[in-house]
Design a protein around this nucleic acid. Structure first.
Length: 577
RNA sequence: CGGGGCGUAGCGUAGUGGCUAGCGCGCCUGCUUUGGGAGCAGGAGACCGGGAGUUCGAAUCUCCCCGCCCCGACCA
C-alpha cells in the first residue's frame, strides 16, 4: 500500500515554467518525473510504478506471443557499429565515449547489430528459425532538439524486438505476428491509435507501419481517410491521378508574360489575357533541386509546394537533397529563373521528375525558358516527357484517398510503435547465415519492431488528462484505488487503513492518503492531480456508516455502506476494465 | 544547426545602477482550524546560471561562456 504520509512525493501547485505539453506539465506537477537535463528525466516513485505497469503489460503481451526476452548493455563497443557503417552514419545523434585506454564506445541508440551478433553466436541452422527476441532497455540518442518532456528524450525506455527468418515468406509471418501482438498491447494500454503506412527510410527493407496515437501535441503528421480508414504517414501517402486525353489540346503556344516570375503574378496576367479561368493549379512549377550534387527538376502543380521529405522518400539512395541556391543557377546559364519549363530540360543536362498530379496527357501553363515568356497548352507526353514520376507535392487536407478517393483529413499524433521488415541488410553486414536443408549457407532475413515505453506513458497521459489533472486507465495507474481519509478524529484514518488492507488482500492496489495535517481540500486536489481512477473518501459520511466512491474520469460520486466498501470497489473495477 | 524567448530559495515570480534582494506556494515551531489548495504568530532557506569588465556602487550595464524552453531543420 502506498501511504502518502511517508510516500516520497511532493506535488506542485503551480505549473512548472519549462513544461508546455500537458503530459510533461502534469507528470512534473503530480510528482511522477523531474527534469535532470534537456531530454533527460528522473522517475519518482509514482512514475516508476506507472512506467513499470506499462512495461509489465508490454512484457506480458510479448511473452504471450512467444517472443523471448534478452538484455543487452547500453554501453557498447564501436566495432559492431563500424561493421554496419552506423558509427559514421548515425552522426552527431550517437553518444560516443572512450574508456581509459582510449577505446571507442557508444551508448546504444538501437540494437540491431547486437541482436544480429547474438543470434550469430548461438545459431547456425535453419531448424532454429524462426526466432523472435526482445528487450526492454534504455536507449540514448543525442537528439538535435529534445522536446515535450518524455515524448522525445535523449535517454528513453524502449522495447525493441527482432525477428529472424530464413525466407521472405517467413518474415511476412513474423511481421504479422508482431503486428497482432502490438494491437493487443496498445489495446491493453488503452491507447487510441492508428496503424499507418510508413516508408522504411534509411533502415532499408520493404514493409513498414507505424502505430500513431492521435493527439494535438504529437509531432508526427499523417493522413487519414474518414471513410475507408486508409492511414498513411505523409511520406507514404500516394497520389492517384488518371492519365488525361490530350488529343484535343491545341498546339503549344508561347506567350509574352513580362514581369511574371511568380505563380501569382503569372495567373493574374493569364486571366487578364484570356478572360479568367486560370488558377495556380493551371500552372506547372519547375522546382530546381540538388540531389547529391546532381541537378534535378521536379514538376508540381503551381499551387503546391514541394515537400522535400516526401520527395526524398521517393528517391532511394539520395542522401542530400536541397533546393537550388544562387551558385547552382550560375552553373546552369540556360535556366531563366522564374521562367523555367520542362520542354528542353534535357538539353541543359537536368533530369526531370514529375509529381503524379502532373499525369500523362495533362496540359499546363509553364515557363518557356526565355525571359518574360511562358507557354500554354504544354502537354505531358507531347511537349515534354518526365524521366520518372515521384511523389513530391505537399499533401493537403481534402486530397483524395488513394483507396476510395474520399477527401482525407490530416491529423497529428505521437509515434508509439514502429514495425518494419529490415530484410538482410544487417545479417549481410555482420555475416549472420544459417545452413539450409541442402547444407547451403543462407543469409537470414530480419524484422525490427519497437515500442517507446516511456513515450507510451506520455502518450497515455496526453490522451487521458483533463483540466484538473491526470486520469489513468486502471491497469496503468500507480494504484487502482486512492483512499482519502479526512477529519481530525482517528476513526476515519483507522477505517481507511482497514479498508485499504482488505482491498490489498483482495489483490487491489491502494494508495492511502493518511496525512493528518493537510485539509480535505488539499487531499482532494492531490488525488485529482495524481489521477488514480477510483477515489474513495472516508470522512464525513462515516457518521452514517458510509464511504464515498468517486470515478476520477467521469466525476460520478456514490455513497456505499462501509460493509460494502470492498465489494463496491470490486464491482466498480469490473465495470472499468 | 537557424530563428525567438528565458535563467533570482524546492516550485511560481517581483525587482532596468543606490539601504539588509521582495512576494506567493511549499518547508519548520506554536496556537486555532479540518469536505474543496485554512487563519494568526514566529522561523529556516538565495554567493540573483558562471566568468571577465565598466562603476564609488551591479541581480540590474557590456563582453564571453554555460544551461533551459518554444518554432523550424533533423529524428533507426
Amino acid at each position: 500500500m502506498l501511504r502518502m504520509s511517508t510516500l516520497f512525493l511532493r506535488t506542485l501547485r503551480d505549473d512548472p515554467a519549462d513544461a508546455e505539453v500537458p503530459s510533461h506539465r502534469l507528470l512534473v506537477r503530480a510528482g511522477y518525473i523531474r527534469r535532470i537535463a534537456a531530454g533527460i528525466y528522473s522517475w519518482l516513485p509514482l512514475g516508476v510504478i506507472t512506467l513499470r505497469n506499462v512495461e509489465r503489460i508490454i512484457r506480458e503481451e510479448m511473452d504471450t506471443a512467444g517472443f523471448q526476452e534478452v538484455h543487452f548493455p547500453a554501453l557498447l563497443p564501436r566495432e559492431p557499429y563500424e561493421a554496419t557503417n552506423r558509427w559514421e552514419e548515425y552522426g552527431p545523434s550517437l553518444f560516443r565515449l572512450q574508456d581509459r585506454k582510449g577505446g571507442d564506445y557508444l551508448l546504444g541508440p538501437t540494437h540491431e547489430e547486437m541482436f544480429t551478433l547474438m543470434v550469430k553466436g548461438e545459431y547456425s541452422s535453419y531448424k532454429d528459425l524462426p526466432l523472435v527476441i526482445y528487450q526492454i532497455q534504455n536507449k540514448f540518442r543525442d537528439e538535435a532538439r529534445p522536446r515535450s518532456g518524455i515524448i522525445r528524450g535523449r535517454e528513453f525506455v524502449m522495447k525493441d524486438s527482432y525477428s529472424f527468418d530464413l525466407t521472405d515468406e517467413g518474415l511476412d509471418i513474423s511481421y504479422q505476428r508482431h503486428r497482432d501482438a502490438y494491437i493487443s498491447t496498445f489495446d491493453r494500454l488503452h491507447l487510441k491509435y492508428n496503424i499507418v503506412k510508413a516508408v522504411s527510410g534509411a533502415m532499408g527493407g520493404s514493409k513498414s507501419e507505424e502505430f500513431l496515437a492521435p493527439c494535438d501535441t504529437g509531432e508526427d503528421t499523417y493522413v487519414l481517410c474518414p471513410k475507408c480508414g486508409f492511414a498513411a504517414n505523409v511520406e507514404a501517402m500516394v497520389t492517384k491521378v488518371a492519365a488525361a486525353d490530350a488529343s484535343k489540346v491545341p498546339a503549344l503556344e508561347e506567350l509574352d508574360t513580362p514581369n511574371t516570375p511568380t505563380i501569382d503574378s503569372l495567373v493574374a496576367v493569364l486571366n487578364e489575357k484570356f478572360g479568367g479561368g486560370y488558377t495556380g493549379a493551371s500552372t506547372l512549377k519547375n522546382v530546381m533541386l540538388m540531389a547529391d550534387n546532381k541537378a534535378i527538376s521536379v514538376l508540381v502543380p503551381g499551387d503546391r509546394e514541394v515537400d522535400l521529405k516526401r520527395l526524398q522518400a521517393g528517391l532511394p539512395g539520395v542522401e542530400e537533397l536541397r533546393t537550388f541556391e544562387e551558385a547552382d543557377f550560375a552553373k546552369f546559364p540556360n535556366l531563366v529563373k522564374g521562367y523555367i519549363g520542362p520542354q528542353d530540360a534535357e538539353k541543359s543536362g537536368i533530369t526531370v521528375y514529375a509529381d503524379p498530379r502532373v499525369a500523362p496527357g495533362t496540359s499546363w501553363v509553364t515557363g518557356s525558358n526565355k525571359k518574360n515568356r511562358h507557354a500554354r497548352n504544354v502537354v505531358n507526353g507531347r511537349d515534354f516527357t518526365p524521366f520518372a514520376y515521384v511523389e513530391a507535392a505537399e499533401i493537403r487536407e481534402g486530397d483524395a484517398c488513394p483507396e476510395c478517393t474520399t477527401a482525407v483529413v490530416i491529423d497529428r499524433a505521437i509515434e508509439i510503435g514502429h514495425i518494419f521488415q529490415l530484410g538482410r541488410k544487417y545479417a549481410d553486414a555482420l555475416g549472420l547465415t544459417v545452413l539450409d536443408q541442402n547444407g547451403k549457407s543462407q543469409v537470414v532475413t530480419m524484422g525490427s519492431y519497437g515500442i517507446g515505453v516511456s513515450r507510451a506513458v506520455a502518450a497515455i497521459a496526453e490522451q487521458s488528462y483533463d483540466e484538473i489533472g491526470l486520469s489513468w486507465p486502471l491497469e496503468i495507474a500507480p494504484a487502482k484505488v486512492h483512499i482519502v481519509a479526512t477529519g481530525k478524529e482517528d476513526l476515519p484514518f483507522d477505517t481507511a487503513l482497514d479498508i485499504g488492507n482488505k482491498l490489498e488482500a483482495a489483490g487491489i492496489s491502494v494508495m492511502l492518503d493518511d496525512r493528518r495535517d493537510p485539509s480535505a481540500g488539499v487531499k482532494f486536489k492531490d488525488a485529482e492531480l495524481i489521477g488514480i481512477p477510483i477515489i474513495m473518501v472516508v470522512g464525513k459520511s462515516l457518521a452514517d456508516g458510509k464511504v464515498e466512491l468517486r470515478n476520477r474520469k467521469t466525476g460520478e460520486k456514490s455513497e456505499v455502506a462501509l460493509a460494502e466498501a470492498v465489494n463496491s470497489v470490486t464491482a466498480l473495477i469490473a465495470s472499468l476494465s
